[in-house]
């Protein structure tokens, strides 16, 4: 290219009319975004303020946007109306934490084999691994239930936690994508120093992949925290319930007996409490979440 010559037309490139329509467009854009944001946040706002109401405030038309008085004790009363502390313990220590450890560890090891070592048949098997994501949960649901029943694993968390230690295709995929971005030279230098693949994975690749591993850990934890269908199938004993089954149990007590006071405020209070940890995790890890999700859409 030769040096660019400013064409005389570029001086009048923005006629006034276009500038005004541009400003109008920009204003309209913010209006749309703000209206959308309000409608996205509204369910959460309504959940929170309804948790602070009593029955007379819940059933009022027109609706009360800021309850006065606000019944803050609803949070405590709702929490102790069912053994939610026990359910919290079950959710975190029996399900979410072991599930997360298994998922991160196994998915990282498998992803290493699918990305940092070249071997015959690798890409075909990786494709197979991805294809298993298409198998509906419902197809394997019945036989898996019967297998775990035979193992005597019903009413335990083993059917939900043990498979995590074999890796999860979605997270294997995410970590593989990340491992592929690490330059091969790093591995080659380590080979020359006499390192084997296990050394390279644990001493080099994993320390370099902390952001990706954190994303996987956060997603795995939230998946377990949110899970409903898994516990629904395998957990019948109320002592072993997770939070989601507890909320469902609380709702059931209200629908069996419609005269119970504060049904909706209590449901909204418990909902607020179990959403809160996700708000906190999301607030601190937003950037990682976004990057993690974005990574899955590529290719």
């Amino acid at each position: 290219m030769t040096a660019t010559v400013k064409s005389p037309t570029s001086v009048q490139y923005h006629p006034r009319r276009q500038r005004i329509s541009g400003k109008l467009f920009s204003l309209l854009k913010y209006v749309v975004l703000i209206v959308l944001s309000i409608s996205f946040v509204l369910p959460f706002y309504w959940m929170f303020v309804s948790a602070l109401k009593d029955d007379s405030q819940v059933y009022t038309v027109p609706p009360i946007w800021v309850p006065d008085p606000a019944y803050w004790n609803n949070f405590y009363d709702a929490w102790v109306s069912q053994p939610f502390t026990l359910y919290l313990f079950n959710t975190v220590f029996k399900y979410a934490i072991p599930y997360t450890i298994g998922t991160v560890l196994a998915s990282a090891i498998v992803a290493y084999g699918f990305s940092r070592i070249r071997w015959r048949g690798r890409d075909a098997l990786f494709f197979l691994c991805l294809a298993t994501m298409m198998v509906p949960f419902q197809v394997t649901m019945v036989p898996l239930f019967m297998i775990f029943k035979q193992f005597g694993w019903l009413n335990t968390y083993l059917p939900l936690v043990v498979p995590a230690f074999f890796g999860t295709p979605f997270f294997i995929f995410m970590l593989r994508q990340f491992f592929l971005t690490i330059p091969q030279d790093i591995s080659d230098a380590a080979y020359i120093d006499g390192a084997n693949e296990v050394d390279i994975l644990f001493r080099i690749i994993l320390p370099l992949s902390k952001p990706a591993l954190t994303v996987v850990a956060l997603f795995a934890f939230i998946n377990a925290w949110n899970d409903y269908l898994g516990p629904l199938i395998y957990i019948n004993d109320a002592h072993e319930f997770v939070l989601s089954l507890g909320v469902e149990a609380l709702r059931a007590t209200f629908s069996y007996n419609s005269t119970v006071a504060n049904a909706y405020p209590y449901l909204m209070a418990v909902s607020t409490i179990i959403v809160l940890p996700i708000v906190i995790i999301f607030f601190f890890g937003q950037k990682m979440f976004i990057e993690g999700i974005s990574m899955t859409g590529i290719k």
């Binding site: 959308l36 944001s37 996205f40 369910p43 959460f44 309504w46 959940m47 939230i222 925290w225 949110n226 409903y228 939070l243 989601s244 909320v247 469902e248 709702r251 449901l267 909204m268 909902s271 179990i274 959403v275 996700i278 708000v279 999301f282 979440f289 976004i290 999700i293």
Partner: peptide, 15 residues
Amino acid sequence: FFFPAIIPTIVTAVV
């Protein structure tokens, strides 16, 4: 816009 995607379905349902 992203946040509703990561809350428990039981909460989505009751709310």
